[in-house]
Design a binder for these strands. Structure first.
Lengths: 161, 161
DNA sequence: CTCTATCCCGACCGCGCTGGTAGGTTTAAG
DNA sequence: CTTAAACCTACCAGCGCGGTCGGGATAGAG
């Protein structure tokens, strides 16, 4: 399991917001009902999205949430990072952003050789990051609306487990 | 955190086996000492690798473990799958193999629309799988030995799903 | 002014899994 | 027969996930 339900629920929430007409906030309650998710839990999740400036809130009666930008400009790496807090494939990865995802393995580096698994986990992280950064919220909204995107998969996926 | 220490320790174990001369088993104790890992825990991990036919064991005194094939023929997707038990990015992914990684979201599919996040998680899974399947144990052994491989990441991934 | 819908926030909690330990049994070499 | 190793089962503490609860703060509606 790479991701928790935080990511799942958070992305669903964003998709729901993306389906709404612009500039009209929708309440969390409405989303919780539509997606059949626990309201109290959603509250904590949307807080993460707000802190990352992905959604905006309007307080008071008839308040709610709306996207902070156009769905086309919301890229999923930012979303998942905001929701999960980290995209490190392994414990020993300190978080990126300042640098670019460095390793500090438990047995620091014995006898001068670098950490054996560093190469592998770094590749995985780069792969995930690239995948996420190539998907926008707008795409997901379209996908859910029934328009299946034109099956873009040029390389025949060498070994689809 | 995508992966647990099972994957970390298991890969390290394989690398250690890959560094040994062929056809001569090495004891878990030796590996535990070399990598500074808890022996009892390693025992459980190596059992996973054996069940997946990635290592072979020799019992009795002077017994131990060795790779079941050449390091060049051991690909990391198989390894990580054996160690982690699944490569599903999200809870709702039933495991692949029989099919190809299908989704059965908690709110099965409401009002006929497919699961909103399916597209995203599928892309991530494909990305990870491709990354793992492009790395062999032999590469990691080389990497650890100091020879940094020539930064292969061939195609800049034209438009990976 | 008050009511009510909503965002907001902190505390709490059960459960499962991870990471690790302990102790014992079987196998085979010397 | 002793010893080194694989092998197996049961056990355990800690922690994070998923979820709940109760109570604010805020703003529109009557």
């Amino acid at each position: 399991m790479f991701f928790t339900t935080k990511a799942e629920y958070g992305v669903r929430l964003l998709i729901e917001l993306g389906r709404q007409p612009q500039d009209q906030p929708i309440s969390l309650k409405a989303i919780a009902d539509a997606e059949n998710l626990p309201l109290a839990y959603l509250e904590r999740i949307v807080a993460l999205l707000k802190r990352a400036d992905l959604v905006e809130s309007t307080r008071g009666a008839h308040g709610g949430y709306q996207l902070a930008r156009a769905a086309e400009d919301i890229v999923m790496d930012e979303v998942v990072l905001a929701l999960e807090g980290s995209l490190a494939p392994m414990e020993c990865f300190v978080d990126d952003r300042s640098d670019d995802g460095r390793v500090l393995c438990s047995h620091h580096d014995d006898s001068g050789r670098g950490c054996a698994t560093k190469l592998l986990w770094t590749r995985v992280q780069v792969g995930v990051l690239r995948t996420l950064s190539q998907t926008t919220l707008a795409e997901l909204v379209e996908f859910q609306s029934g328009k299946v995107p034109p099956a873009r998969e040029p390389a025949p996926a060498p070994s689809p487990v």
